[in-house]
Design a protein around this nucleic acid. Sequence first.
DNA 1: CCCTAAACGAGACGGTACGTCCGGTCTTAAT
DNA 2: ATTAAGACCGGACGTACCGTCTCGTTTAGGG
Lengths: 200, 200, 200, 200
Amino acid sequence: VAILDAAAELLRRGNPASVSVDTIAAAAGVGKQTIYRWWPSRGAVLLDAMVRGAQRQPPVADTGTLIDDLEAFLSATFRAASSATTNSLLRGAMAEGLRDRHGAEVLQRFTAARRDVLREILERGQMRGDVPPAVDFDLVIDQVYGLLWYRILIGHTPVTPRDARPLARALVVQLRQSVTSTKQFTQPSIVAQRARGRST
Amino acid sequence: VAILDAAAELLRRGNPASVSVDTIAAAAGVGKQTIYRWWPSRGAVLLDAMVRGAQRQPPVADTGTLIDDLEAFLSATFRAASSATTNSLLRGAMAEGLRDRHGAEVLQRFTAARRDVLREILERGQMRGDVPPAVDFDLVIDQVYGLLWYRILIGHTPVTPRDARPLARALVVQLRQSVTSTKQFTQPSIVAQRARGRST
Amino acid sequence: VAILDAAAELLRRGNPASVSVDTIAAAAGVGKQTIYRWWPSRGAVLLDAMVRGAQRQPPVADTGTLIDDLEAFLSATFRAASSATTNSLLRGAMAEGLRDRHGAEVLQRFTAARRDVLREILERGQMRGDVPPAVDFDLVIDQVYGLLWYRILIGHTPVTPRDARPLARALVVQLRQSVTSTKQFTQPSIVAQRARGRST
Amino acid sequence: VAILDAAAELLRRGNPASVSVDTIAAAAGVGKQTIYRWWPSRGAVLLDAMVRGAQRQPPVADTGTLIDDLEAFLSATFRAASSATTNSLLRGAMAEGLRDRHGAEVLQRFTAARRDVLREILERGQMRGDVPPAVDFDLVIDQVYGLLWYRILIGHTPVTPRDARPLARALVVQLRQSVTSTKQFTQPSIVAQRARGRST
DNA sequence: CCCTAAACGAGACGGTACGTCCGGTCTTAAT
DNA sequence: ATTAAGACCGGACGTACCGTCTCGTTTAGGG
């Protein structure tokens, strides 16, 4: 079975998206039926292969600070995502996930695992006190992965590790303020007032 | 031509994703060649139709404050995106965009336009002084639309207008701190120090 | 495979010439690809089917005389060709053969086989001594089948078994004289001289 | 209108059979509608053009003898038919004639005219006394044109002027014996009897 | 000499068929 | 009894062509 995936991956790297089931079977030296014995559909096979390809978990380092943990994590993640092959892998994964019920499940499991990694980092920061307690991380996590996927899928801007630092900073700021009351925002902000004052 | 799109939309709403060119042509009472005369491929047609369907621009209100502008915008956007039909429309749009070179272009144009709307809001806030000058909005913008698309595409969490308020707040915080020096982050944060102190 | 041809024939008998590959496939309860797996093109399929339909070999009787053999053969052939269905079959066969490279081959094989049948009859006559030796039969054979096809294709005159007898006689006369020297023809014929004499 | 045909011919000589109406129109610098204004269908246009191309009437010489007249005529006819372009012209003509009702008419008129030329030669021979009176020429005529068309359409044997002489001779023999009583044929032929005698 | 009407070029259009490509199922022969 | 090989049905794709149908534009002839 691993041979099959290996073959599937090899094959997939070769060309853009013309990976038919027959192609995979031929490349793996395997009958088509054997593929369908273990996967419910084409999408499932491809997603399994792709997910396996994108699954090189960057080891989550504990640097002692939330900001540094985040930056390290984002940097590693973005670096991986910036490679052309990973990029097209993820695009292919999403394409399959959108077309295939089974593929969607695999994709959902995969992304859930990734979100958990980030959530762990944030929770560690919370325990450390870098983040106020009782903050819901879902928004932040989806902001991060959303940014990543969005740029990869749309392709309007490349994903680069250089975005890791500013993004990490922004997120930390955001998290620290998450429980603050709404009031200050409805009024022109103090910073803005100062800025105006300064600009005068 | 508009007739065709109308027919295409009608048709598309009817079924899941089995919208073949022949089906569209038949439904629109049109020869297949006529479709290929104006669009380079199936994907382009579908994306044109979908984009048209998702293009109901929520009017960008000017409330006087960045945070309120943002919340209004996000609220409207999320509300639109939370409808089941828009949801499947966007999923279909991305599916086509990933499979079709021409579709990708259409999708890119569409999303670029959407980003510009948000950018305009941010720039207005910047002029107003709610945001420090010389801030690059790209990161923030892609966080917003990334979040939106990510949730829609993965489907792990529904998009609801209730996320508009916290997200708007988070973004404003992010933007206000964008020019602050890096130093405070590279050192354990004051909050973190206090937390540690407390936790001791 | 035989099922397919059977279906194809059935179908073809039903209508004039609008026998599309899709129609055949549908009528045979078969995928289009299965057809193209065994035949290189539409024409080849149709010709195979038609040839099969026209292939009812009239058993070549040996009556003992060339003239009788010929008449029997021609009579049987013409009778078969005079039926409306065979007629339109042959017209269709030629139409395909002219349009399709693969069809042309099939048609050539088919007609070659038919010519061989006639050639066999002539050779038997030759061995019997009804025909001088060292006569090239090609001309005679093509005269016969030419006449047949010409009448069928142009349609100016129906083919009837009644032509078999005079044609057989004419051919035998022709064959007996085939080796005669050219001289008698270059001079006004004796018959002609007599005729002139008489007409004087 | 002549321009159109000229263009059509030009075009047709260029390629095998992919002469669409659009192609003709484009090549002739003419709107498609203009073509349909004067011809009822594609086949009619093509056949008109082809017939015009094949219509170079060899002047029917009067040599004084039937056999010479025939040989001259056949030689000229076969020579014309042996050229590759005329050959493919005639094949194309038949192809259209078989597919198109209007084309069939044109083809029928064309071939009828050709037959009449040959019939005229034969009738002249009859008046001269070379041929017995009260003979039906249809069989002979169709043998000649049948041979010609058969060889051209099937393509198993090229048509060459060298066949003119033996064919002419054969026809004359046929014609001279046409009125002879049937008796000699129903009995074993003299030649056959001699042969048997010899073989004894 | 203009002015209307027919003929024209250009080409979009509805349809129909072609031949190709896959997805997923079913069959067969060999291991 | 599992496998590789691959035939099979179904259905979509994008292309080609036919004959019809507008469009403006040109040409012609009658006022």
